[in-house]
Simulated scan of single mutants.
Amino acid sequence: MAGRPTIKDLARAAGVGTATVDRALNGRGTVREDTVRKIAEAAHRIGYHAAALIDQQIDAALPEITFGFVLHKGKQQFYQNFAKEIEAAIAARTDIRGRAIIRFSASQTPEDFLKEIRKIAPKIDVLGSSAVNHQNITQEVRQLKEAGTPTFALLNDFAQGIREAYLGLNNMQVGRMAGWMVTTAAKAPGKLAVFVGGNRWHGHELRETGFRSYVRDSAPGFTVLDSLVNLETRQLTYESTLDLLDRHNDLRGLYVAGGGMEGAIAALREVSQPHQVALVVNELTIDSRAALTDGFVTMVISTPLQELCTDMIDKMVNVVKHGSSETPGQSFIQPQVYLPESFG
């Protein structure tokens, strides 16, 4: 078309009437959202001078949603990546004007989680958290629900029966996968050890249960030692792994069900040979990837964060727009599995 595109050119390009374009440009009357989007796309395509005005009309019509998140271990690579994927999933939505408030609990205590939740609660429409299991957390979730703010349990299930849904891995399945890998990779029957973050992590308890269940049912030649609490810290895991290796010369495998895997990797590098002890960890990081390559980690079971966050934001938008479900649910994401040959 010659010269500057006119409103008639825009109407023709969008396949609508000029009156519809006029209403979309000036906010007169009601124009369906999909029609406004069609006009906006055509305006950008033909270089219509008021394309930005149509974009503003679209933005003004979109609902605003403020998403709140309280995670933990903010310095850990996995949770930094989690926060980035949350922001990306919200930015990818074209049906809302969304923003995220992301806070990190100073520790894994219920009090610190509650402190951060209460800071953001008045500002948000929906909450997602990786909080621990505790009656005070459950009570807070109940109060949020009564105030019209639904809560989603992320990675670790808490406030069952009150929270809107659990989103994450099937932790029982993850534990059984770890049990299969450790017993398959072990060079001979012997002892196995499991690290859990603490007694308030429901997800860790399920992983431990799945691990023990698999070994009991399918690998009776192995003995699972009493589980060790590492508080998801590198140093405690490091010291405990060295102690295990010193006391049990028939230690064949380790499973770190939560955080702190860097300590187990460091201990194995220090006193054992590659592939001597089968080690399964969760989440692919710089450390776990390097240990896979070097033979000190046997398998990494990883949470696909992009898929999780896309599903999570979709469910959060739905509950804000349409209300809570009468039946609290759960949504399992299939884990990603990484082996030494995954990066060949």
Score class of each variant (00 low, 15 high):
Gly3Glu: 07
Gly3His: 08
Ile7Phe: 01
Ala13Gln: 06
Gly15Cys: 07
Thr18Tyr: 06
Asp22Arg: 07
Arg23Thr: 00
Arg23Ile: 01
Asn26Cys: 05
Gly27Ala: 07
Thr30Val: 13
Val36Arg: 10
Val36Ala: 08
Glu41Val: 11
Ala42Lys: 13
His49Ala: 15
Leu53His: 09
Leu53Ala: 04
Ile54Trp: 14
Gln56Gly: 14
Asp59Thr: 13
Leu62Pro: 04
Pro63Gly: 07
Pro63Ile: 05
Phe69Cys: 10
Val70Met: 06
Gly74Trp: 00
Gly74Ile: 01
Gln76Asn: 15
Gln77Ser: 13
Gln77Met: 13
Phe78Pro: 00
Tyr79Pro: 00
Ala83Glu: 09
Lys84Thr: 09
Glu85Val: 11
Ile96His: 10
Gly98Ser: 10
Ala100Lys: 08
Thr109Glu: 06
Asp112Met: 03
Phe113Gln: 05
Leu114Asp: 03
Lys115Arg: 15
Ile117His: 09
Arg118Cys: 09
Gly128His: 07
Gly128Pro: 03
Gly128Ile: 03
Ser129Ala: 02
Ser130Arg: 10
Asn133Thr: 13
His134Asp: 15
Thr138His: 07
Val141Tyr: 01
Arg142Lys: 15
Leu144Trp: 09
Lys145Gly: 10
Gly148Arg: 02
Gly148Ser: 01
Thr149Gln: 08
Pro150Ser: 03
Thr151Trp: 02
Ala153Met: 00
Asn156His: 12
Asp157Pro: 12
Phe158Ala: 01
Ala159Asn: 12
Ile162Met: 03
Ile162Gln: 01
Gln173Asp: 13
Gly179Arg: 03
Met181Phe: 01
Met181Pro: 07
Ala186Val: 03
Ala188Asp: 11
Phe195Glu: 02
Phe195Ser: 11
Gly198Gln: 08
Asn199Ser: 14
Trp201Ser: 15
His202Val: 10
His204Ala: 06
Gly210Gln: 05
Ser218Arg: 12
Pro220Phe: 08
Gly221Gln: 11
Gly221Val: 06
Phe222Gly: 00
Val224Glu: 07
Asp226Tyr: 06
Leu228Cys: 13
Leu228Ile: 15
Ser240Gly: 10
Thr241Trp: 08
Thr241Lys: 10
Asn249Gly: 13
Asn249Phe: 08
Leu251Asp: 00
Arg252Pro: 08
Gly258Phe: 06
Gly259Glu: 09
Ala264Trp: 05
Ala266Phe: 01
Glu270Tyr: 09
Gln273Ile: 11
Leu279Ser: 01
Leu279Asn: 04
Val281Tyr: 01
Leu284Glu: 02
Leu284Asp: 02
Ala290Tyr: 14
Leu292Phe: 12
Thr298Leu: 04
Ile301Ala: 12
Thr303Met: 12
Gln306Leu: 13
Leu308Gly: 12
Leu308Arg: 04
Asp314Glu: 12
Lys321Phe: 11
His322Pro: 02
Ser324Val: 15
Glu326Lys: 15
Thr327Leu: 07
Thr327Gly: 00
Gly329Val: 04
Ser331Lys: 12
Ser331Gln: 14
Pro335Val: 05
Glu341Asp: 14
